[in-house]
Amino acid sequence: MAFDNFAEFLAMGKHGAYVWAAYGISLLVIAANILAPILRQRALRIDIQRKIKREKLES
């Protein structure tokens, strides 16, 4: 372990803010890239189901 205790790990010398900021933003961007397709897939399924129902009514 490169740090003696957890507090020091968080502080990381004076660079803690920068390191955690960089990792935080990366987490956000990657989470967005994971969530977007999931939400889009759900919306698409609902939309297709609605279209199928509408076509059944018309025919």
């Binding site: 490169a2 740090f3 990381m12 660079h15």
Partner: peptide
């Protein structure tokens, strides 16, 4: 990889700990 890079890799004699951002920056 991240845990090792953040917690266990030794600090850089020149830049201290800020180099740990490399573990996200270089793959990206």
């Amino acid at each position: 990889g991240i845990v090792w890079g953040l917690a266990f890799a030794p600090p850089d004699y020149l830049q201290g700990n800020s180099y740990r951002i490399m573990y996200i920056h270089v793959p990206a």
